[in-house]
Nucleic acid binder design. Structure first.
Length: 225
DNA sequence: TGCCAGGCCGGGT
DNA sequence: ACCCGGCATGGC
């Protein structure tokens, strides 16, 4: 249900974070392909480790669709070792590249010319691409207006009494999308802010902090659904 | 040193 | 429909 109070509060948090962090212009990556690769490699993984893996891929000339398509999985695994789960991720990367290369000729423009709701369903059919990875690809590589829910989003908004532990991805995503403008640049910036905030103030070692820019919002224990 | 990080799948209830 | 074990490295 849309609720003006929720909309106002969410937007207000977004503005506070904009003042705190400035414009973030996410996602870190020089090309759409690099962003899509990063989205897969960062599954349950520290970005620092992913960054090393991506640098290595660049050195090997592997941030290019045709090269990746022809790369064998085993060797790819060695190259991306630093990001962890490397066997699994090499397979997932290949699954995505096979899809991208065979169905769209490796063309980013063709990929994102598809209606994004259809494209989302296609991405979710690929083994190794779940909702967060699909949405990151759509939002950050394709500029589509879909909100990305990640561990930081869950943790931050759980602490603010918006959701229970067990709220589904769908449920959380829906909440943001009905209470914020349907605008990819808002979703882009807001999610980026939440990741930064999570790293700085809201990881597991930092359960609660008065220095968090969102702390003024903490005492409002209203019902949010 | 042990715990943590921007998920997802497959098999079992 | 959930629940859980497995997947793995580098940083602090």
């Amino acid at each position: 249900m849309v609720n003006q109070k929720n909309s106002n509060e969410l937007y207000s948090m977004h503005q506070v974070l904009l003042e705190f962090y400035g414009s973030l212009h996410w996602w870190p990556g020089e090309s759409s392909l690099e962003i899509m690769v990063g989205a897969i490699l960062t599954q349950n993984t520290n970005w620092q480790n992913v960054s090393k893996a991506i640098e290595k891929m660049k050195e090997e000339g592997l941030l290019e669709v045709t090269a990746l398509f022809h790369m064998d999985e085993k060797s790819l695994g060695k190259i991306i070792k630093s990001c962890g789960y490397y066997n699994l991720k090499a397979r997932r990367l290949k699954n995505f590249i096979n899809f991208f290369y065979r169905n769209y000729g490796g063309s980013v423009e063709r990929l994102f010319s598809v209606d994004w709701k259809i494209l989302r369903e296609e991405l979710l059919k690929i083994n190794g691409i779940g909702p967060e990875t699909a949405d990151s690809i759509l939002l950050y590589a394709g500029n589509k207006p879909i909100f990305v829910v990640d561990a930081y989003t869950r943790r931050i908004f759980h602490r603010h009494n918006y959701f229970s532990f067990k709220a589904s991805y769908q449920e959380i995503q829906h909440f943001f999308m009905v209470h914020l403008p349907q605008d990819h640049s808002v979703y882009n910036e807001f999610h980026a802010q939440l990741v930064m905030l999570g790293k700085d103030f809201c990881n597991k070692n930092n359960p609660l902090c008065s220095q968090c820019p969102l702390s003024p919002f903490l005492n409002k224990k209203t019902s949010h659904s």
